[in-house]
Write a protein that binds this DNA or RNA. Sequence first.
RNA 1: GCGGAAAUAGCUCAGUUGGUAGAGCAUCAGCUUCCCAAGCUGAGGGUCGCGAGUUCGAAUCUCGUUUUCCGCUCCA
Length: 512
Amino acid sequence: MTQEDLFKNLIAHTKEYGFIFPSSEVYDGLSAVYDYGQLGSELKNNIKKYWWNAMVRLNENIVGIDSAIFMHPKIWEASGHVGAFNDPLIDNKDSKKRYRADVLLEDYIAKLEEKIHKDVEKGKNKFGEAFDQVQFCATNPNVLRNQTKIDACRGRMVEALNANDLAALKQLIIDCEIVCPISGSKNWTDVRQFNLMFSTQLGSVSDESGTIYLRPETAQGIFVNYLNVQKTGRMKIPFGIAQIGKAFRNEIVARQFIFRMREFEQMEMQFFVRPGEELEWFKKWRETRLKWHKAIGLGEENYRYHDHDKLAHYANAATDIEFNFPFGFKELEGIHSRTNFDLSRHQEFSGRKLQYFDPETNESYVPYVVETSVGLDRTVLAILSGAYKEEQLENAEERVVMKIHPALAPVKLAVLPLIKKDGLPELAREIMKTLKLDFNCQYDEKDSIGKRYRRQDAIGTPLCITIDHQSLEDNCVTLRDRDSMAQIRIPIAELAHKVDEKVSMKRLLELI
RNA sequence: GCGGAAAUAGCUCAGUUGGUAGAGCAUCAGCUUCCCAAGCUGAGGGUCGCGAGUUCGAAUCUCGUUUUCCGCUCCA
């Protein structure tokens, strides 16, 4: 079976058993938006708990917050999102290629500059020692013409970009007679604006001043609370602030199931350090975070680092942790050394001092930041795709089993009376009653026992206990393991302990 | 956003030149069943993605539209 088929089967499986549904399905769905069903939300909650415990509970110097999705609009100016994510785009109708309008114009200017440069070189060769570049540029007609074009183009472009005048940008592209590098044609669409941020109105009256954005990342909620947390939590550098929450990006194309959604959830931690020590901490978190992923048990070979060569405007080091999804290795988590960019910018834009007085060095400084940012939905997808197995059994039968780590599995155990009479259901209910306080249990008495085992395999339940006639006499039940399908007989009194041993989150946390 | 393909029951699909919407599995109820699904009986569930048009009559033909998948494109 190809990876593609397997992925299709997985998507169908997650829908069929209640992990993930397309959003608003009765209204034909909503593009690139998905809902978590009864099992998906359990799984997601378990992942959150695993992350939160690993970050906040295991580290004395990391605390968690939960900031609002709505934030002051100036935050997105300070962070660079308003400037950097308003790209004017234009399509060539013949080649079907899309370009950034400003990049097309910059390329055009670069070409003209190249021409001037060539003319200057020619001049140098011609006049030798007597060559005066300033004089040459001021008199040579070719150079003058090109320079005039450059100045005009640049002037109009800056004006149009500042005024957000898309029609003027298009007119400029037409006037400059820019052709598509692929098709060579001038057959352009209108320039359109793609803003990656969703906006809405604060207050019931809509006017320009009330426009606010749904946050495109959770990080800024941490940065603007840096001072609050540091002061009230008496935090000493180095320390971290963690947060799990939703973020929103109006992607042009969002696809590949829950890999790229317009509404998604991040698990982020910003770690504040002394300037100059950031790369050391970057290295440390890079390793720690990979361990966290590998502990989930989807196979170490399915993870790899991808170090960035091209860095974002705020970073001085960046790595992705990639996972081998059914559609190839793709980013699961980003670890970025963000320098003091964010806090400095907020200091500048807010006029508040966002510094730390370091009692060890007697210095005040804006802390440097190392960020770890995992996609929660991507982690769900990694687990679902990594755990989904279509197994061939010895008796030539097939079973679909989700080998989700027991600590993360949505349902921890199923309680199954072998048959639904002779007092077996009653005893099963009694056992269920005590266990459901500690574990997410499912009770099932419908169909043959084998069928019920397969049903539990299909949703990744690590343990099943079966109550038979003998149980009524010796107070023992059968404990059946999902992965090995092996069965052992144990006293009812030992059940809670035995199950806890298997499904406890401790087993995961100890590996980090 | 562009190009290609698809959409019929929860799932997988059938449905003849246009003539009353079907199967298997799943679900539910009852029976059966002493440890790895698909034994018996019965039941529920579909305005065939949605909207127009052609026609006496449309799941079927035409147009539009939505969603999904694949390939481009985009992705601090």
